[in-house]
Design a binder for these strands. Structure first.
Lengths: 157, 157
DNA sequence: TCATTTGTGCAACATTGTAGCATTTGCGTG
DNA sequence: CACGCAAATGCTACAATGTTGCACAAATGA
């Protein structure tokens, strides 16, 4: 069961995960400043980030990257199956690393605090609920509502 | 069980449904050309439509409406609970009439044929799959994959 | 080192939606 | 029916989020 949103999505950088360089060269891509930087940001992100947030992270790290180049790097990562797009409530895509192929997880968007959390338990239930003949393919799936933190009554002051 | 997408979403205009005028005046809104026209389009639409599609329908019917006015009419409908927003694969919202309050349904977006279908059976399963403390609120929920038509092998020629 | 091909960076454009504001219109009242 | 006023409309601008085209730079293999 998932109660605390901050631990609900404990993805940040498994120690044995392949390096950015490895991820890139494995698909025959060139190892460029932007791709490495974006990968590093995504790898240490606790939840899906949109283009703006990624750019902000990069700037915080003292890196300057062109807006278009960022879009293209992200597009490439998605195309290569390294990252996925997640639809948010606004019309901006969020991006997230694909952790292990074969396991898809859904996202929950809290309409109170705006956070996007990852839910590992939902997909099996969904697969059973879909009509026969339908196939659930994409991890891009977002539920909306209120998360545990926001439904909980405030602590007595 | 839902097998045929064309019947899966059999919403078009129940004969006893309230008229556009009734729907509008019931919330204290003014009955204007645009609201009535938009409601009529949504009422006869077999699936959620985005702003562009609605405008196209109106033009096909010989009606000319301002882009902004359309947005505002749609916003008002959503605000009044008459319509809901559905997120699509592009960043444009789709709109759909709320049929009966109290019953929320999810949407399935087929990535082959691009159709958005409505699934009545999914929500109960979802509610059980969410972690404790989480509340599923919004009907705006889209699953992605392939629908029955598109997963089925082509008929032997 | 050199050539080739892949990415980058810039500027311009496209789509989707919002904001401000003057004008028109629906509709209750006299 | 005429009036008056709030509610909607219809501009025009503007904002956010991507995309496209093209010249230039840089990664990689020979």
């Amino acid at each position: 069961m998932i109660a605390n949103p901050d631990t609900a999505h404990s993805h940040p950088a498994a120690p044995d995960a392949p390096s950015a360089r490895e991820l890139i060269t494995a698909r025959g891509g060139r190892v460029t400043r932007t791709r490495v930087a974006v990968l590093d940001v995504l790898r240490s992100a606790p939840r899906p980030l949109n283009h703006d947030q990624i750019a902000a992270e990069l700037e915080a790290a003292g890196e300057q990257h062109d807006r278009v180049t960022l879009y293209r790097a992200l597009d490439w990562l998605v195309e290569q199956g390294i990252a996925t797009r997640v639809a948010g409530s606004d019309r901006a895509w969020k991006f997230e690393l694909v952790r292990d192929t074969g396991h898809r997880h859904a996202h929950f968007h809290c309409q109170r605090c705006g956070r996007v959390l990852c839910l590992d338990e939902v997909e099996p239930a969904l697969a059973g609920a879909l009509p026969a003949g339908f196939r659930l393919e994409q991890a891009e799936l977002v539920l909306h509502g209120a998360c545990a933190d926001c439904t909980a009554p405030p602590p007595t002051p």
